[in-house]
Design a protein around this nucleic acid. Structure first.
Length: 796
DNA sequence: GACTGGTGAGTTTTT
DNA sequence: CTCACCAGTC
């Protein structure tokens, strides 16, 4: 037997080695699904299948990266290099970059993220003179997105009885026209949104038989992870691709379907066996991840859902501890409890930070955890939320790159036309936009023809200077890689200089973010250089020719992937930090110890998802996913009261709590009822509830518990505010004037004030005369800016 | 055209 | 609590 097959159980072995024909692997949580998938790929290759003929699709970059990494470990990097492994979106983006011209898009089309999409919608709603309050970008976009995911184009949308009825009922009958205009505008801008990456891929395969044939021939083996999360477009695409050889292997767990809001439908997995004649089905039911307690609770919970593929998950693992149910008074106490428990577990059981993950339903919940972890001196990292690439200054900089690469990109051009301020204001912009809309040419073209539209004098001059600059950048594209172009942009726009001269903490942070972006582009270019060169069709070139090498490092290629990246993709596997993320983001991951926070009605289940049985069942599956992330220990916490929009609100305990089997639950920290007594000694009670006989140790370490109710908005002050010099750490980069702390201290009046956990710095020189709250990341070297407050905070 | 202070609306979940 | 937007002022 081959080495790589050793250690598989019987079912896993069958799943990994049944290489021809359609195969469905129904994999329970923790059943070694990733192992089977990677082994399967190794096995394919051991049996003579060329890496070029294998396509593996995942839902997150992380899952793709992990799969690739494991295969490289099994086979060595060279063998694995040519595999097509990636998310649906990134793989299709790559293919479309070569094939888009067939559909009338430029090959360097822009990819719009949801912010761009919303901005386009906003513009259209304005242009159509509709009520902006009623046609909110969020609502309209989700409607359009839903349609696209179901393969319903603008024309079909207009004719779809149910969709029209829904719009009539909601009094949003203009959506049909907005959809039409939105599609047209994106096309005009040479841009695809996230959904288009799927939809256009489908159109490509559907419309051009020769293209379909080409890819069917290329991807003779198709593997799809998390199949239960596919939506109709993804389903159709994979069906087309697999139609010729039917070597399609899908892996999924209907109990973990949590993306219906994105159009995913559980039907795809339930009906897979009807799609092909001879489907082999393998069920992986042995769980290798969790303790019996954890698995039992998960199994019991999920049984409340109807309509599942029957599965009997079991484990040989130890019984393990009971699941801890913990109630705290406030959201802040919840954070404190978790932080303290992590401390305690580390001391008692020698866990590392990286053994812990804190999961929650909404990103907004991360804050209380974050503050308390920082206070406890525990290194952590938050995944999700606002990603690095969504920051304003980053988007601005990238907008330059986008316009350079694709002048049709109106959204990007609008961002940078007057940033940094160069005197092209609203009036001018609007005049030109109107001209381009009426004349049917691009915004960029209207700029080049500004004179025709009555612009003159200073304004005209400024516009022409802008055009000259951008043309200069474009002239670099041919011979220079992404980093070189970006560096020129940094130099010649006043962007970096302006951020540098902005001495406010905000400005400094932005300045450094830009540098981090430049560094990451450099890193990317270097990485590309090292990779074996593959052309757009994925054909290996015997000797990498310079053209291809250049293309691989080009700005266009860089931009193609940048929008699809999230923070979670940064490879920081080894860093010893506690990880915080939403449950959605945690799917596919596992940790020795898991905390799930906010088990309260209207949070989990979300108040938005309790109206139908289907919605509620999805929330329950989400809860199931959360629980099954845990290997050894699990804490479920909820708070009596928490802040929402700055107001204190009360939620009932989550209904899911009642669904758990009593015998596996440790309720000793859950309290009995909520009353005034609890309030007055909440803290004491909380501390005395730690395991057995540890309150003393805790007390010795952290001091005596406060006797009074502790305010959720901390009034406790750092006795000595960290010095500014510590806050701003900075690595000077070539060609940039480095910032340093003297900019702050010398020039400006810096006043340390005691407020909250961060240090409030009043800065005379700062724009808007604002006060920035600076927080310190104990783990790292980086400062974190959480929020800004206006002057009035001083008075409180 | 640029800048400021005041106002109202927003929190599911992700590529 | 925060942020985007708008109207009014220079």
């Amino acid at each position: 037997m081959q080495d790589y097959l050793i250690g598989l159980n019987e079912k896993q072995y069958i799943a990994a080695t049944h290489i021809n024909g359609p195969l469905m692997i129904v994999a329970g949580a923790g059943s070694g699904k990733t192992k089977v998938l990677t082994t399967r790929i190794a096995h394919l290759m051991a049996n003579g299948v060329d890496a070029f003929n294998i396509l593996a699709l995942t839902f997150t970059n992380k899952a793709a990266a992990e799969m690739r990494e494991r295969i490289e470990k099994m086979l060595g990097g060279n063998e694995a290099r040519n595999l097509y492994i990636g998310t649906f979106h990134s793989v299709f983006a790559r293919i479309l970059r070569a094939e888009a011209p067939r559909l009338g898009y430029p090959s360097n089309f822009s990819i719009y993220d949801s912010d761009d999409s919303k901005s386009v919608i906003k513009t259209i709603v304005k242009e159509m003179d509709l009520d902006e309050k009623h046609y909110k970008p969020n609502v309209v976009l989700s409607r359009i997105s839903q349609a696209k995911n179901a393969l319903i184009g603008p024309l079909e949308y207009a004719e779809d009885y149910y969709l029209q009825q829904e719009d009539i009922r909601a009094n949003r009958t203009a959506i049909t026209n907005i959809y039409k205009a939105y599609t047209a505008r994106c096309f005009k801008n040479g841009a695809m949104d996230f959904d288009d990456l799927l939809l256009k891929m489908y159109e490509l395969l559907h419309t051009f038989p020769e293209v379909l044939l080409k890819f069917q021939h290329k991807f003779r083996y198709v593997l799809i992870d998390e199949y239960q999360d596919t939506n109709p477009v993804q389903y159709q695409i994979t069906k087309l691709l697999a139609a010729a050889h039917e070597n399609i292997c899908v892996v999924g767990d209907d109990a973990q379907s949590i993306y219906s809001f994105r159009g995913a439908t559980i039907e795809n997995i339930l009906l897979f066996k009807k799609d092909y004649d001879d489907v082999k089905i393998v069920k992986l039911e042995q769980n290798y991840r969790s303790t019996k307690s954890i698995l039992n609770v998960a199994n019991t919970i999920i049984q409340n859902n109807k309509n599942q593929i029957p599965k009997d998950l079991w484990t040989d693992n130890a019984d393990g501890e009971k699941i801890n149910l913990v109630r705290t008074l406030t959201d802040n106490d919840e954070g404190k409890y978790v932080a303290t428990t992590i401390q305690e577990q580390k001391l008692r059981n020698h866990f590392y930070n990286k053994d812990f993950a804190i999961l929650y339903r909404t990103n907004a919940q991360s804050r209380a955890f974050e503050e308390n972890l920082r206070r406890a001196g525990i290194a952590y990292k938050i995944y999700g939320g606002l990603s690095f690439y969504q920051r304003k200054e980053i988007k601005d900089f990238v907008a330059y790159l986008r316009v350079i690469s694709n002048t049709r990109d109106e959204e990007a051009l609008k961002r940078i036309i007057n940033y940094p301020i160069r005197g092209i204001g609203k009036t001018t912009t609007e005049k030109l936009l109107t001209a381009s809309n009426e004349g049917g040419f691009t915004f960029w073209e209207s700029l080049t023809r500004a004179q025709e539209f009555g612009l003159k004098g200073h304004t005209l001059e400024v516009i022409q200077n802008f055009i000259t600059m951008m043309r200069y950048f474009q002239s670099l594209l041919k011979e220079n890689n992404a980093y070189e172009v970006a560096m020129q942009v940094g130099k010649h726009t006043n962007l970096v200089k302006e951020l540098f001269s902005d001495k406010s903490t905000e400005g400094l942070a932005r300045y450094e973010n830009i540098q981090e972006l430049l560094n990451s582009i450099k890193e990317w270019v270097d990485q590309q250089e090292n990779l074996a060169q593959i052309d757009e069709d994925g054909t290996l070139l015997e000797n990498t020719d310079t053209e291809t090498a250049k293309n691989a490092m080009s700005l266009g290629t860089y931009l193609q992937q940048i929008t699809l990246l999230t923070d979670a993709d940064k490879n920081e596997e080894d860093s010893d930090v506690v990880k915080l993320m939403t449950i959605h983001a945690a799917k596919g991951l596992e940790f020795p110890i898991i905390f799930v926070g906010g088990l309260e009605e209207s949070i989990f289940p979300s108040g938005m998802s309790i109206n139908t049985r289907e919605e509620l069942e999805e929330e329950r599956r989400l809860f199931y996913v959360a629980i099954t992330r845990a290997k050894q220990k699990l804490w479920l916490t909820y708070a009596n009261t928490r802040y929402r929009f700055g107001n204190l609100v009360q939620n009932d305990p989550s209904r899911f709590i009642e669904e758990m089997p009593e015998s596996f639950i440790n309720r000793s920290s859950a309290g009995n009822s909520f009353n005034a007594n609890n309030y007055s000694n909440g803290f004491q009670q909380r501390n005395s509830n730690f395991g057995n006989n540890t309150s003393e140790a805790i007390e010795r370490k952290y001091g005596p518990p406060p006797t009074k109710k502790v305010n959720t908005r901390p009034s406790a002050l750092p006795s000595q505010p960290p010095s500014i010099a510590k806050v701003i750490e900075h690595t000077p980069q070539p060609d940039f004037t480095p910032s340093d702390t003297s900019n702050l201290v010398e020039g400006d009046k810096v006043e340390h004030l005691k407020f909250g956990f961060g240090t409030v710095i009043k800065m005379e020189g700062a724009a808007h005369n604002r006060i920035a709250t600076v927080h310190f990341n104990l783990n790292g070297e980086k400062k974190i800016m959480l929020n800004y407050a206006k002057l009035r905070i001083l008075e409180s």
